[in-house]
Amino acid sequence: MIGWIIAIAVVVILVLIYFGLYNSLVKYRNRVEETWAQIDVQLKRRFDLIPNLIETVKGYAAHEKETLAKVVEARNMMTQAPADGRGEQMEADNMLTGALKSVFALAESYPDLKANTSFIELQHELATTENKVAYSRQLYNTTVMTYNTKIESVPSNIVAKMGGFTKRDMLATPEEEKVVPKVQF
């Protein structure tokens, strides 16, 4: 009789451990999804600011159509990137970031644009948004690292395999953004 009680207790403990590990993996997987959604929110915010920026710049730099067209093209790529294609979304985001840098470089050529209140406010809003995107990307990578570690650690790796939990990829910085800018005086 005592043997059966011990066997049942061991089974109950193992089931409770399994449920605890499974729920922990679900929690971390959901955190990964939440942090990705935060990146998406910031990209949407930036996406919504771009038409205002383009219109402000158009008035001052009408003949800079090629630069503005690149921004519009990159913005359109963001809308065409599949919602579940994180790699494609980040690639489109990187193109958009490069195109926006070109627009801000135009301000150096147009002092009136550089002094325009709307342009300054938009530039500030976009800079704030870029900082939020960078923070969100860092948070996403930290969350993915925690989730992946949980999936690979014993004993949760056993539960992860049984539950179909898979590793997630971290976001990487594109090679062109890793190049240190050359400063000359």
Rank of each mutant, 00 (worst) to 15 (best):
residue 16 L to Q: 11
residue 137 R to G: 02
residue 138 Q to L: 09
residue 44 K to S: 07
residue 162 M to G: 08
residue 104 F to D: 01
residue 4 W to T: 06
residue 89 Q to S: 11
residue 179 V to L: 12
residue 162 M to T: 04
residue 61 A to R: 00
residue 7 A to K: 02
residue 174 P to T: 15
residue 153 S to Q: 15
residue 14 L to S: 13
residue 65 K to S: 09
residue 111 P to D: 02
residue 149 T to L: 01
residue 52 N to V: 07
residue 64 E to W: 04
residue 153 S to E: 07
residue 90 M to N: 04
residue 14 L to W: 08
residue 151 I to Q: 01
residue 105 A to H: 15
residue 41 V to W: 06
residue 122 L to I: 09
residue 138 Q to I: 01
residue 126 L to A: 09
residue 115 A to F: 01
residue 77 M to N: 15
residue 125 E to T: 11
residue 1 M to R: 13
residue 91 E to V: 09
residue 50 I to Y: 04
residue 42 Q to I: 15
residue 168 R to D: 05
residue 130 E to Q: 11
residue 83 A to T: 12
residue 149 T to W: 08
residue 64 E to K: 08
residue 93 D to G: 09
residue 118 S to F: 05
residue 175 E to K: 15
residue 97 T to S: 00
residue 169 D to A: 06
residue 11 V to R: 08
residue 49 L to C: 06
residue 36 W to A: 00
residue 80 Q to S: 12
residue 179 V to P: 00
residue 29 R to D: 06
residue 67 T to S: 10
residue 171 L to Q: 14
residue 171 L to P: 11
residue 15 V to Y: 14
residue 99 A to E: 01
residue 148 N to C: 09
residue 32 V to L: 07
residue 46 R to V: 03
residue 41 V to Y: 11
residue 105 A to N: 10
residue 148 N to R: 04
residue 96 L to D: 01
residue 123 Q to L: 15
residue 6 I to D: 13
